[in-house]
Nucleic acid binder design. Structure first.
Length: 423
RNA sequence: GGAGAGAUGGCCGAGAGGCCGAAGGCGCUCCCCUGCUAAGGGAGUAUGUGCCAAAAGCGCAUCGAGGGUUCGAAUCCCUCUCUCUCCGCCA
């Protein structure tokens, strides 16, 4: 959520910013509501003040043993007035809040203009594309003989699920281990284990609700649970309604979790293979930082994710998402795209975002600034470090051999009992 | 699943319809004093929010959450959530 005061004092700026995302903000409706809000809030608070003052007087009169009946008569109709004012105020605030919750974050100045991923800005490339003396297969063709079974996933659950057997399953676990070990031992993150079902408050805090409910799986319960679409949700919510001690910052968490996405609206895209599943494994990096540190933290966090690709010697490129492709809650996002020989394409394997105070405001996640002594909003960041399912695909495709076997990358062998080849 | 107890500020804890945004203690910050020194004294110390460009100031809201009773609710009533204890079941 953006700062409501920004809407009040700098509406044009907000409108301009939203235009970068291709959003036409309805200022007229907003202003109408906001003006009414101001009137009614002032009126309501005046009435409350009057009630409080008079009630206090009644109490004092009673204490002195005076006749309070005349005082009671005076406040008779106050209650009704207050009730209707409060009701109206509540309704207007709910409507304003609705509008505000639907407004995406302001983009960082560095974010390039553009409408779709075609307009994203390539920042760098790393690694040499592998040269094959044969036509490289994609992970589906490679995987099926090795224990990657989509039919079984469909039988057990539905399309967009997979069963991994044997060494492929182990390979994915090794990948996860490598990521966790690297981020905890080399990058200073604290490993975290969290609930994979969360409540609506948590999803509101990180921005998935109310706007993106269709992307989530819901679990019948009262109140409902949601399957996490990313560990970002439970992990970032660690600091919801918390005032973090400045001494403990930055907070850096790494968390491996399954992720569940309904992929509503993704019908027909990436239907083949493990690229887009309802359930996949991911190692997530989350940082809670002081505002002045978030830009640097964003670079660092992205580098931390890149480290994994480098350790695995997987060629990738780093792109800065353009205005139209940057997510709702993010102010600036780098995507890391890994080379997939089977598709002859770079595909997203990590998305690293600086949310600045957008999530923090929804979360009421703050820190106490020693200079002012006051609680101030923190900045939150997160990024995949990396998506494990897609990393598995990338390893398979980049390390494939002519005979359909897969060489195990050196850094992973320690996690696989020294195994150097999957066949 | 059954039975019971509880939820108050950073922490502990009082509070039983008005003088309570809340005693007292601990902790923390600042100041003072001091060679009876791992001591003493004093002051300060919740959050959100409205009016305001902002500060100051003046309000409003918040005692687990939501609703109700009342002129007035931390306090009474209802619903829910969470925590703890015991029993049952169980990875």
């Amino acid at each position: 959520m953006l700062d409501p005061r920004l809407f009040r004092s700098e509406l044009e700026l907000v409108q301009q910013q939203l235009k970068r995302r291709g959003i036409d903000f309805d200022a007229e409706t907003y202003l109408g509501l906001e003006n009414r809000r101001k009137d009614i809030q002032v009126k309501t608070q005046e009435l409350q003040n009057e009630r409080n003052t008079r009630s206090k007087a009644i109490g004092q009169a009673k204490g002195k043993g005076e006749d309070i009946q005349p005082l009671l008569d005076q406040v008779q109709d106050l209650g009704d007035q207050l009730k209707s004012a409060e009701a109206e105020l509540g309704e207007i605030q709910a409507r304003l809040n609705n509008i505000m919750e639907g407004v995406p974050n302001m983009l960082d100045a560095a974010v390039p203009a553009g409408k779709s991923d075609a307009d994203n800005l390539e920042i760098s490339r790393w690694g040499d594309l592998p040269q094959f003396s044969f036509t490289p297969k994609d992970h589906v063709d490679l995987g099926e003989p090795l224990g990657m079974n989509f039919e079984l996933g469909a039988k057990i659950a539905s399309a967009r699920f997979v069963v991994l057997a044997g060494k492929l399953a182990t390979l994915q676990r090794a990948i996860i281990q490598l990521m966790l070990d690297t981020h905890t031992n080399e990058h200073g993150y604290q490993e975290t284990y969290v609930p994979f079902l969360v409540n609506a408050d948590s999803l509101r805090g990180t921005g998935q609700l109310p706007k993106f409910e269709a992307d989530l799986f819901t679990v019948k319960n009262d109140p409902a649970f949601y399957l996490i679409p990313t560990a970002e949700v439970p992990v970032t919510n660690i600091v919801r309604d918390v005032i973090v001690d400045a001494k403990h910052m930055p907070l850096k968490y790494v968390c491996h979790s399954p992720c569940f996405r309904s992929e509503a609206g993704a019908y027909g895209s990436d239907v083949r293979g493990m690229i887009r599943q309802h359930q996949f494994e991911k190692v997530e990096l989350v940082q809670i930082v002081k505002p002045e540190q978030s830009a640097q933290a964003h670079e660092d966090l992205t580098n931390h994710a890149e480290t994994i690709l480098k350790k695995l010697k997987l060629p990738y490129r780093k792109v800065l998402l353009c205005a139209g492709d940057t997510g709702f809650s993010s102010s600036k996002t780098y995507d890391l795209e890994v080379w997939l020989p089977g598709q002859q394409k770079y595909r997203e394997i990590s998305s690293c975002s600086n949310f600045k105070d957008f999530q923090a405001r929804r979360l009421q996640a703050r820190w106490r600034n020693p200079e002012t002594g006051k609680p101030e909003l923190v900045h939150t960041l997160n990024g995949s470090g990396l998506a494990a399912g897609r990393t598995l695909i990338a390893v398979m495709e980049n390390y494939q051999n002519a005979d359909g076997t897969i060489t195990v990358p050196e850094v992973l062998r320690q996690y696989m009992g020294g195994l150097d080849r999957i066949d």
